[in-house]
Structures are given as C-alpha cells and as structure tokens.
C-alpha cells in the first residue's frame, strides 16, 4: 500500500538547540529530541530558536556555537538526521533592515525564507508594513502557527491579505491534535481545507510527549489527502531549506 511507504520528513520549526531559548534545556534533551525525530522518519530538521528585535546578534551568535556543538554530538552519537540552522523571529518594526544586515535570520542563512512569529494576542499595527518590506526585499516570510492567532481563530480568511501577497503559512502538527484547544484546531483545519496552509512543522520544545510530525502527517492525510500532506511535510520544506535547487543530495 502506497500510504505505508516511509516518508522522509523535513521539520522546519523546532527548538532543539540546547539552552538557547525555552526549548531543549541541555545537550542531552536535544539529542533525545533528535533521536526520536529520526525514528519517526524526520531526515532533516531546522533549529529555529526564538529571536527578538532587541537581541538578534547575541542570540544568533550563541545559536551558531550551540548549533556547531550539536552537529558534532549528533554525528558522534550516530543519529541519522541532518540539522540546519534558522530562527523563529518575533515580528518587529524594521525587521527587513535587520535581515539585510544579518542573513542568519533566514532559514539556513539562505536569505530566501524567514520564519516569523506574531504576538500571540493580536496582529500588531506594524505587521502589514514589516511583512511588505520583507517581501519587496526578496525574503519570503513564513508565518509560524497562524492558527493560534486570535484574529485567525475568529476568521481564518484574515490570513488572505498575507497569503495573497506571497506569505507562507506554517501549521503546527500539535494544533491538529488539539494541543492548543479546540478553536485552534478548528482554525488549523479551516486553513488546510481551504488550501491556505503551505507547511507543517512540529514546533518541538521538549523531548518526548509532544505531538510529532509523523502523527500530524497522519491527521493531515485524513484532512487533505496524501498528496497534499506530502507537499506540506516534504516538498514545501525541502524547497525552503534549498534542497531542490542545490540538488546536493
């Protein structure tokens, strides 16, 4: 059966770097997360620590060091997973300028895609302008978990102003499991069913327990079918981390 074929997942939103943000506390937890992810079929994973406008370089410097150590440790432990570095950037006024200064804000440092997070309580007044600035400077914003935003919960069509302009939406696999409540789940399903969501990622913070990308994928298949589910969990992420163009694998 086609549906039982193993899928090589790419997870573009995780907090696996040890001791950088509210994600993995130490190297041990980071390695456990990676080991579990690898078992669940994740072949490539992007570490996206929280970054705020006021501490961009400090966090990114620390993240780079941590990333290097984690990469070495992963290889030493023989975990079959490829790690990339990115960031989950809190949307702030003047972000586009910062990206021009420091491309490490983008995923894999490629300067093409940036994972951005909205304030959890409302879409701020500067959101439209900041996103526009990013888009015109050639960086595609990936809106992390829009299904958790109150405006989107109230009316999922409120994302259209952004998606029409080229913004990509990333759904959390945990949202489909109801991890953040029923209204968030409903918003996620609405976005997927209406073809507004592009990517699914895990947003993993802890080892064990969390909803894995694999479980999310199975739910996703039920909602939109295997083809689209593969698109959201494999092909769209691989485009984002630059695999399709470089063709180096």
């Amino acid at each position: 059966m086609a549906s039982s074929e193993p899928v090589n997942f790419i997870d573009i939103h995780t907090h696996i770097l040890p001791g950088i943000d509210d994600g993995a506390k130490d190297m041990d937890e980071s390695l456990r997360i990676l080991r579990d992810a690898s078992k669940a079929g994740v072949k490539r994973i992007v570490a996206t620590p929280h970054v705020f406008m006021e501490n961009i370089s400090a966090v990114l410097d620390a993240a780079e060091k941590s990333f290097a150590t984690l990469k070495i440790e992963t290889a030493r432990q023989g975990i079959d997973i490829e790690i990339f570095l990115g960031a989950e950037v809190s949307l702030g006024a003047g972000l586009a300028e910062e990206v021009k200064k420091d491309s490490r804000l983008t995923i894999g440092g490629g300067g093409k895609y940036i994972l951005v997070e909205m304030p959890f309580f409302e879409i701020p007044i500067y959101a439209g302008k900041t996103i526009f600035d990013l888009l015109v400077s050639g960086v595609t914003p990936i809106w992390a978990h829009p299904e958790r935003c109150p405006e989107v919960i109230d009316n999922f069509n409120s994302v259209c102003a952004y998606t029409d302009n080229g913004v990509k939406l990333q759904i959390n696999s945990g949202s489909l499991a109801g991890k953040y409540g029923r209204s968030v789940k409903r918003a996620a399903v609405n976005l997927i069913e209406n073809g507004l969501a592009h990517i699914m990622a895990s947003d993993t913070h802890r080892a064990g327990g969390d909803e894995t990308l694999l479980k999310g994928f199975i739910r996703l298949e039920e909602i939109c079918g295997r083809g689209k589910a593969l698109g959201m969990c494999v092909s769209a992420p691989s485009e984002i981390i630059g695999l399709n163009k470089d063709n180096n694998n």
Partner: peptide
C-alpha cells in the same frame, strides 16, 4: 522569566511606537 507574556506585550508596544 524570559517567556513571561508581559515582555511580549511591552515588546509589541515598543515595536508599534517605533513603527508610528
């Protein structure tokens, strides 16, 4: 602590002030 929501409220307001 760093993830206390008040920080995000204040951060958002500061970004709004900058933006205006």
């Amino acid at each position: 602590d760093p993830r206390f929501p008040l920080r995000e409220f204040i951060r958002t307001i500061r970004n709004s002030i900058k933006f205006t």
